[in-house]
Amino acid sequence: MYTIRQERPADYEDVYQLVKRSFATTAHSDGTEADYLNELRGKETFIPELSLVAEDAEGSIVGQIVLYATVIATNDGPVTSLVLSPISVRPDRFRQGIARAMMDRAFQIAREMGYTAVFLCGESETYHGLGFCASWMFGIFHKDDPRAGWCMAKELIPGALEGIRGTIEIV
């Protein structure tokens, strides 16, 4: 059993170690994900309400997720959206539904805050089952690779990306 709650500054070191351990098991890690998260917390695009942790019954952090603001550049001007990055689960807790539960909770909060879509970079076979598809299918292209299958989007509100055409930069 676990609970999902907003991350607090007192959690930062535990989350840092969790992210390092979690990404150490992935083939596409460059080892900088934990540092990236630390840097993200200091940026204007960071949204504290969308930085969550999963905590087990003993009070240990077993997962984390963060959604932050980004902009889709369109001919009609910028459109604000969200990026999911990173999401981590303690390796000994993989395949227990923690990541999906954190996403569900983060997406619920995001909808309540007025956000309508989420983007991410990742393995399509992992995220397709969670409702993500290539962002180019919506007419939104990654700035550096227009047909990138790894740049994905999910509408939090059905039809939210209809009529939006542009580019997004996810780093």
Rank of each mutant, 00 (worst) to 15 (best):
Y2M: 04
T3Q: 14
Q6I: 01
R8A: 13
A10P: 03
V19Q: 03
R21D: 13
A24I: 03
S29E: 00
S29V: 01
D30K: 07
G31F: 00
G31H: 00
E33P: 03
A34H: 11
L40S: 08
L40E: 07
L40N: 07
E44L: 12
I47R: 02
P48D: 07
L52H: 06
L52S: 04
V53R: 10
A57I: 14
G59Q: 08
S60M: 13
Q64L: 12
V66F: 02
Y68R: 01
Y68S: 15
V71L: 15
V71I: 13
I72D: 02
I72F: 01
N75V: 08
G77S: 07
G77Y: 10
P78I: 00
T80D: 13
V83E: 10
V83L: 05
V83F: 04
L84G: 05
S85I: 00
S88C: 01
V89L: 06
Q96R: 14
D104H: 15
F107R: 13
R111L: 13
M113T: 14
G114Y: 10
Y115I: 09
V118I: 08
V118S: 11
F119L: 07
C121G: 09
G122H: 02
S124F: 10
T126V: 14
Y127K: 05
Y127H: 04
G129M: 10
G131T: 13
G131D: 11
A134Y: 04
S135Q: 04
M137K: 13
H142R: 14
A153K: 02
L156R: 05
I157W: 06
I157H: 08
G159F: 15
A160F: 00
E162P: 03
G163D: 11
R165Y: 08
E169T: 11
I170E: 04
